[in-house]
Design a binder for these strands. Structure first.
Lengths: 127, 127
DNA sequence: TTAACATATGAACAGATGTTCATGCATTGA
DNA sequence: TCAATGCATGAACATCTGTTCATATGTTAA
């Protein structure tokens, strides 16, 4: 009985349908919240058309801000802001030469993630 | 001279530093905007901690809304709203049984994308 | 049928996000 | 040194997003 009381105290708001074994096991095996938060932050970078287009352009070659601005048909400021986010997330890196800043991809995972995403949406379209 | 005028008309706001060869080539090889938009929509689903946690839980096993609600420590409504988004993006699928709705992953790409993301952030941390 | 329950969903709200505008900083060439 | 150029960045603004609340839908058991 004391045991029951403890369960009630610990599992506040427990719904009646909960499969306790499943819930406990899944909870234990989940990566910690910090990791998942960081992961979400990474994927957030892929979750905007402008940034995806920037990455996609950089798959081909290193480019300066001005080139990217022209390729995307967007203002230099907008591109620059997005590049800052991509830099912060270690997705792109800069190389400065004279007045220009040349951006390129920092890591081959980026393209792999991109390609898996493409596969997924293509299967979806076929289905 | 007429040629110069046309160039000015077509390439409005052209910056002076643009590397025209590079820009033209990259532009040609870029996937179309629709595809990149759809791709961004997909990755948007990975770009939220709640949804990442849901996917992560479903890697282990099929779960009902109520279980997920308990695992995440979040309200049923919030979870249900997110599941709807994941359903719409063909990331999860539902199986209904009695009063419950059991969710599971729709496609193995999802876990692969997740794992590549993990690799990326782990390399980042090591560096 | 009715009550209880699991889930879904619309509305409302707060907070996050992306672009533009204005401006600052560094580099280059005159 | 000064003007022009390429890039970065803060502020402002509109839009998008995620959660909560209230409520609806559909299923089950009594």
């Amino acid at each position: 009985m004391r045991n029951d009381i403890n369960i009630e105290i610990n599992d506040v708001c427990e719904e009646q349908c909960v499969h306790n074994d499943a819930v406990t096991e899944v909870k234990e095996k989940m990566p910690n919240l910090d990791t998942l938060f960081t992961l979400a932050e990474l994927f957030k970078m892929f979750g905007d058309t402008t940034r995806i287009r920037i990455m996609c352009a950089l798959f081909q070659r290193e480019l300066c801000v001005c080139d990217l601005s022209e390729i995307l048909g967007m203002g230099q400021s907008a591109v620059s802001h997005q590049l800052r986010l991509l830099r912060t997330s270690s997705i792109v890196k800069v190389r400065r030469e004279g007045k220009s800043a040349y951006y390129s991809l920092d890591d081959e995972h980026i393209q792999k993630i991109f390609e898996l995403g493409l596969e997924h949406i293509n299967e979806e379209r076929r289905a």
